[in-house]
Every structure is written in C-alpha cells, then in structure tokens.
Amino acid sequence: MPNQTIHGFISENQNELLEQWTNTLKKLSDQESYQLTDQVYKNICKDYIEILLSSSTETIAEEQVSELALRAVQIGLSLKFLATGLSEFWKHLYKEMNDGTLTDQESTELIWQIESFFNPINTEILNQYSISWEKTVSLQKIALQELSAPLIPVFEHITVMPLVGTIDTERAKRIMENLLNGVVKHRSQVVLIDITGVPVVDTMVAHHIIQASEAVRLVGAKCLLAGIRPEIAQTIVNLGIDLSQIITKNTLQKGIQTALEMTNRKIVSLGE
C-alpha cells in the first residue's frame, strides 16, 4: 500500500526528518524575521510527525491537528509561513525517498503517492489554522469592544468616559449604550467625555458626541466634553461644527473641577 510505505519510511527515519524539517522552518523563519527559539520549531515539527504517523487513509488525527494549528496561531506564525513549511516538508521527504535509482515513471509515481498522503493532512491543518485565527480575532475584537468605551465613576454622581483611538459608527453605538446604561447604573448627574486620546475629530465624530450629549440630557444628566486640544478646536471651527450646547474644557482636570461645581462641590486645599 503506497500510504503504508510512506508511513513506514517516516516512522523509521523520524529523528532524521525531525532535524531536517526543524532546520527548514528555521531557514524560513529567518526570511520572515520571527523571533522564536529553536525548541519552538522543533516542537512544531515533532507534533507534525506525530500527526503524520497517527493519521491513516481514512482518518486524520483531528485533535492533534487542532492543537498544532492553535499553537501556530498563538505564537504568531502567518498562514503563508505555515503553508510554505508544510509544502517544504513533503518535498524533503521525496528527496529522502528517491535514492537516485528510480525511473522517471517511478519518480512521478512517488511524487503522486507522497502528495496524496500529505495533501489531506496539510489541508486540514491550514483549515484548522483559519478557524483558530478567526476565533482568536473574534475574541480579541470582543475584548477591545469591552474596553473601547468604559464609563468610570470618579466621584459620587460624576462619571468619566475616556476615549482613545478612532471613533467609527460601530464604536459610537457602544459609546451611546455604555453612556446611557452607566448614567442610570451610577445615578450620574454629570458625565465627562474625555477625547484627549482621540486623534481626529471630524464631522462624523462630532455628530456622535452631540448625539451622546443629547441622549445623556434626556435621561436626566449633564454632559461635559474634556480634552479639546488647540488643533481639535481649530478643526471644529473650520468644519463649522456647533458644540455650543455642550460644556467644553481643554483638560480632564478642569472638566472634573467644573463637574464638582455643577454638583455643588469643589476642591479645596487643606492648611498644614
């Protein structure tokens, strides 16, 4: 049986193949500038050999394939790197199994046998890599969304929402939801939206801020906008954006002082 022949060769020469395939991955990694240890590449090749030996014509070692694919995602190997490495593995195997005495027909037959043995396994590894990558990206996206618009209570009845990064439509919706839910949850009277970390305030961003401010007002609280840097102020003026209905401050510190005054409190210095 062709697959049994290939399976037996891998089993008998797995130490030599492990060394050769590890060196192959290391050479490929130099081109991609990966900063991984030799042991990492050796472990990947060792796991790959175990998958080859555990798989048969009818079945593929799915659990081991999933674990290898997930490990590749976690250590940051690209799909291109993984696909190239898997392709190089079977080419090396062909060179080892072709002792130079094969006829052209026998050589072609050997290539077909090796390819038919490797292809289903390699395809499944790449498929599981894609699945693991999508899951990882999805989890990261959820985590970023949870951190993208936090509402933080800093004093009684005063909360702050620090915004960092670009504000798109999807994030603006989350900002609105967090604001309204937070105002009710914390019984806020004043909400500060700090845009110090927002690089650009254009018409769309300003529109979202105005909407958020109006929504906060409708649920019984007041909204302050802090972090208006000079370049942001100039952009707002040039775009003709009307923020006259929103109290604005250039720093979060001044915003908190104003919020305290709006709730009949203030910061005082204690004498020595």
Rank of each mutant, 00 (worst) to 15 (best):
V65R: 05
M176D: 00
S116F: 02
R174C: 03
E50P: 09
F117T: 02
R187I: 01
S148W: 13
Q145K: 15
T203C: 05
A143C: 07
V40Q: 13
Y34Q: 08
L179M: 11
E88M: 07
V201F: 04
V191S: 03
A149P: 00
E156S: 08
I195T: 05
C223K: 05
E214P: 02
T136Q: 13
V237R: 01
P153A: 04
T59V: 08
S56Q: 11
P153T: 01
L102G: 01
V40S: 13
G182H: 00
L126S: 04
I75G: 06
I114R: 03
T22C: 09
Q253S: 10
N264Q: 14
Q74V: 03
E12W: 06
T123F: 11
Q128L: 10
K42D: 08
T248C: 11
L163I: 13
T59R: 09
W90F: 13
A83G: 10
N127L: 13
L18M: 12
L139S: 12
R229G: 00
M176Y: 03
T263M: 05
L243F: 13
F9Y: 15
F117S: 00
V73H: 00
I209F: 12
M176C: 07
I241P: 07
I210M: 12
I60H: 10
N264M: 01
D99W: 02
M204S: 11
M161N: 07
K141N: 15
L139I: 14
I44P: 11
D47H: 14
I125P: 06
I210Q: 10
V205A: 04
T169S: 14
R171T: 06
L126K: 10
I49Y: 14
L260A: 04
D242T: 05
E124G: 03
Q211W: 06
S78P: 06
N23G: 11
V237A: 11
I49H: 13
F9C: 05
S188Y: 01
E214Q: 15
S269K: 12
T203Y: 05
M1F: 01
E62K: 14
L93F: 03
E177G: 00
A143K: 15
W133C: 04
Q253P: 08
G197N: 06
L239M: 15
T84M: 07
Y129T: 05
V205Q: 07
D38V: 05
A221V: 01
S56I: 03
E19M: 05
D30F: 01
I75S: 10
L82C: 02
L52Q: 13
T263K: 08
R187S: 07
Y129E: 04
W112Y: 13
E62V: 09
T263S: 02
V40N: 11
L53F: 07
E272P: 01
K254D: 11
N23H: 14
E134F: 04
T166I: 12
M204A: 11
Q145E: 15
N127H: 14
L110G: 08
V40A: 15
E177S: 06
D47K: 15
Q211Y: 03
S11C: 07
I44Y: 15
T248N: 08
V216N: 11
S33M: 04
F89M: 02
S78K: 02
N13I: 09
L243V: 09
A149R: 06
N3S: 14
Q145L: 12
I114W: 00
E12V: 08
V191P: 02
S87E: 13
E96K: 14
E16I: 14
V190I: 15
M262H: 09
